[in-house]
């Protein structure tokens, strides 16, 4: 009797550890496929129409300076292209994920701007002060572009955090997998005479995991309005919202399979158990 109680306690403790391990593996797997995956991030930039939106955002910010400068808005036309933004954003993403060094080059923007200003002011007789002001204006526009795209401090900080996460993940993942394997072996040893109990335990573990994630995503949606997030600017906010929604949607769709598999495992193990019980009764 005491042995049976101890066996059940050990079984359920192992079950809880198994559930924690499965929850963690699922989370790590989802993060690896999404936010820790450079290609996923770049795909989201494309899907969110980030480059075109960012181009508009950049031009709108340039207009701030135009209105005060006395120059016409035509001087900032065509100085920035969607391609240039895409090139620079990819460079920054590579810097974050691969740790490469990337510096945004604003030479083309400044050259085009200078050309536009010179064309606009062709009929004016410019003083030395005017030339100085124009030079300062061009430098300001170049700098504004860099600030909008890079937020320099963030790139190196994010790369540092990313590297830390990858290191932790590379340590935890094998531990979790080993843990799951060891628990399976121990459960096999404990229940070698009644294998269907192991199927039932796995079913319970999967069902618990599925319900856990449903509750977590519900609590997240209740406490945070993900769709209203505003980080840095509208274009970046849209990408981040899509990434977070993508992670939540991936987990939710995986949950359906986990819950269904869990319930099936439980039903199958109970059917096997009922057949075994019937056979035992018949023998008696």
């Amino acid at each position: 009797m005491l042995m049976k109680i101890v066996k059940n306690i050990v079984k359920y403790l192992l079950l809880i550890v198994l559930i924690i391990a499965i929850i963690s593996i699922i989370l790590l797997t989802n993060l690896s496929k999404t936010i820790l995956n450079k290609n996923y991030i770049l795909e989201n930039f494309e899907k969110s129409n980030f480059y075109a939106n960012m181009e508009n955002e950049v031009i709108e910010n340039f207009e701030k300076y135009i209105l005060q400068s006395g120059l016409e808005e035509t001087v900032i036309e065509n100085i920035v292209s969607e391609q240039k933004i895409e090139e620079d954003v990819e460079g920054i993403i590579n810097a974050i994920y691969d740790g490469t060094d990337y510096k945004i080059d604003t030479t083309t923007i400044e050259t085009k701007l200078k050309e536009n200003i010179n064309n606009y002011l062709a009929e004016y007789k410019l003083t030395e002060e005017n030339e100085k002001t124009i030079s300062q204006f061009i430098k300001t526009i170049g700098n504004e572009y860099k600030i909008l795209l890079d937020y320099t401090d963030y790139t190196s900080r994010i790369n540092h955090i990313y590297n830390k996460i990858i290191t932790i993940k590379n340590v935890i993942e094998p531990i979790l997998i080993t843990c799951i394997i060891v628990i399976c072996i121990v459960l096999l040893i404990i229940e070698y005479k009644q294998i269907y109990n192991i199927i039932s335990l796995f079913g319970i573990a999967m069902l618990s995991t599925g319900i856990f994630y449903i509750v977590c995503t519900y609590i997240l949606k209740l406490n945070v309005k993900i769709e209203n997030m505003q980080i840095l600017n509208d274009s970046i906010s849209k990408v981040i919202i899509n990434i977070i929604q993508g992670i939540v949607d991936k987990i939710n769709s995986m949950n359906i399979y986990i819950i269904v598999a869990g319930i099936l495992f439980i039903i199958i193990s109970n059917i096997i158990k009922s057949i075994k019980m019937k056979n035992t009764e018949d023998k008696e």
């Binding site: 359920y12 809880i16 559930i19 618990s208 319900i211 439980i266």
Partner: peptide, 29 residues
């Protein structure tokens, strides 16, 4: 006989689902 088996499976399944729910509640707590 069949009805008994079915009733056992249903009861056992519900029991196991409740166990799963309780473990989840304990975890979240």
């Amino acid at each position: 006989m069949r009805r008994n088996k079915l009733s056992y499976v249903v009861k056992a399944t519900i029991r196991d689902m409740i166990v799963a729910l309780l473990i989840m509640v304990l975890l979240i707590f």
